[in-house]
């Protein structure tokens, strides 16, 4: 069973504000899933290369040729908060 602390840590990494109720629901659900997927332990994969892609191709490139950017209005159109030039975010505290 995942501990409450585990859940808090993961939620913080994932940037989710989970309520105590959500945490108490998620704990058993995630624990059950984690237990379930642990079945993979029984597979011998010592000599197996991880498979990242469903089809294996390499060297997919594009040429270094420009195409037009979005107009600024288009770039900002869906943003929750802008000043018409920039995306605005709550103050970033760096030090």
């Amino acid at each position: 069973m995942l501990s409450e602390d585990d859940i808090h840590k993961v939620a913080e990494l994932a940037r989710l504000n989970l309520s105590e109720q959500q945490i108490s629901e998620l704990r058993p659900q995630l624990s059950k899933l984690i237990d379930y997927v642990a079945v993979l332990e029984e597979v011998d994969t010592d000599e197996v290369e991880p498979m990242v892609h469903a089809i294996e191709q390499t060297n997919v490139f594009r040429d270094d040729i420009r195409s037009p950017p979005l107009p600024r209005e288009g770039a900002l159109a869906n943003a929750p908060k802008t000043d018409g030039k920039y995306f605005l975010v709550p103050q970033i505290i760096e030090h």
Partner: peptide
């Protein structure tokens, strides 16, 4: 004054 930060992409 703690106003919003701006993001330029």
């Amino acid at each position: 004054r703690g106003e919003d930060s701006k993001v330029d992409l």
